[in-house]
Design a protein around this nucleic acid. Structure first.
Lengths: 198, 198
DNA sequence: TATAAAATATACCAATTGGTATATTTAAAT
DNA sequence: ATTTAAATATACCAATTGGTATATTTTATA
């Protein structure tokens, strides 16, 4: 069973992570945090060294949730090329889902932390690399299995897909219009059909 | 000739715009502003109603500079399809150029203002629409002149290009790696050749 | 050059910032 | 049930926040 402190830590992260994600680091104050959690500074600073450490834990907490959800979704098929279609399938509904998280953590914290918080930015970079490695790995498996053309540079293609997805997420949020996500996913599906398929 | 006040206003915007762009609204304090400009609060508040008004003026100032530069670059050719290639040409060097502006204003302020500053966000939306209208207009002219296939939906395609560009800008900044911008521009050039050309 | 007006500087405000030392409460182990 | 340790609350800190009223300086006009 979890100790009381562990439950408190979880409660803090569950409450605070979306706030940091939505507002950004500087725009989130410690009183925002105590108000939202219903806890006092004693409880917060007892569980986290300082504001920055809490922000980093919050980012990791949100990303873990997100990555788990994607991973589960990708298990719906064993075929590499079908897994790629499952990725676009996932992001077609990403606007509604990520709103619960306070927005896309990679986009929000990536922009927010740039030239502001080195440690936080470092964590974003690591996550982006991890995501791209996973997509590249799927493509490589597709090549091995013969589903995907051997001409394809897996890592380059993974970066391309990631770039397009992040662009679509940014546009959908900024314009408050799901067209961008939907259309970009259609575009990627076409790319998979026309460029990737063996 | 410009009055002293107009010069001061210009000096404030020139100095402050990149700071707001780089740090974001909340992370930029009035003392950051007075320190950077060498002016006092009296001068700042005498020229701008409040912090928000200054942030909005700063955004507009940066965007105007950026848009003028793009427009000038596009005048290097009269051919619509060549103008599209000039757009990718421009963004190939966008990392170095936009750093002088404190980053990409559309990306930075778009993310920063989301769910934070309604007025600022509204201004970002207007600029994005303006950019897309201009690209769509170029494509339409290409169709009229017979350079671009009449099958193309100009507005949809303009949005696609914009989405890809913004994604590449985000990735290049977050990963501090120009590969994303360069590769995306190559990809767009290929699209122009393969999908757009009549 | 004197005067009016515009522009800028100074001094101040209450409220809030992130953080800490200590007091109190709560939970775990004997 | 008592003790001990862990967790949380309270009260406080100096520094900074955005903003304002007023004083001073600078500019333009006559």
């Amino acid at each position: 069973m979890q100790t009381k402190a562990e439950l408190t830590k979880l409660h803090i992260l569950e409450t605070v992570a979306p706030i940091f994600n939505q507002n950004g680091y500087a725009a989130t104050s410690m009183s925002d945090i105590t108000n939202a959690t219903g806890l006092t500074k004693g409880a917060i600073y007892g569980n986290f060294k300082n504001k920055e450490a809490l922000a980093i834990s919050s980012f990791k907490f949100t990303v873990k949730k997100l990555m788990t959800r994607i991973s589960n979704h990708l298990e719906l098929s064993d075929s590499p090329i079908q897994k790629l279609f499952l990725i676009t399938d996932f992001y077609r509904n990403y606007y509604d889902y990520s709103k619960q998280l306070g927005g896309c953590p990679v986009l929000n914290i990536g922009v927010d932390a740039n030239n502001q918080n080195t440690l936080l930015l470092k964590n974003v970079k690591i996550i982006i690399e991890k995501i791209q490695d996973q997509v590249a790995s799927i493509i490589e498996q597709g090549i091995e299995v013969g589903e995907i053309s051997a001409e394809i540079n897996a890592m380059q293609y993974a970066k391309r897909l990631d770039t397009m997805i992040q662009g679509a997420v940014f546009m959908t949020y900024t314009m408050d219009d799901e067209f961008y996500l939907k259309d970009t996913m259609n575009q990627i599906d076409q790319m998979i059909h026309n460029e990737l398929k063996a």
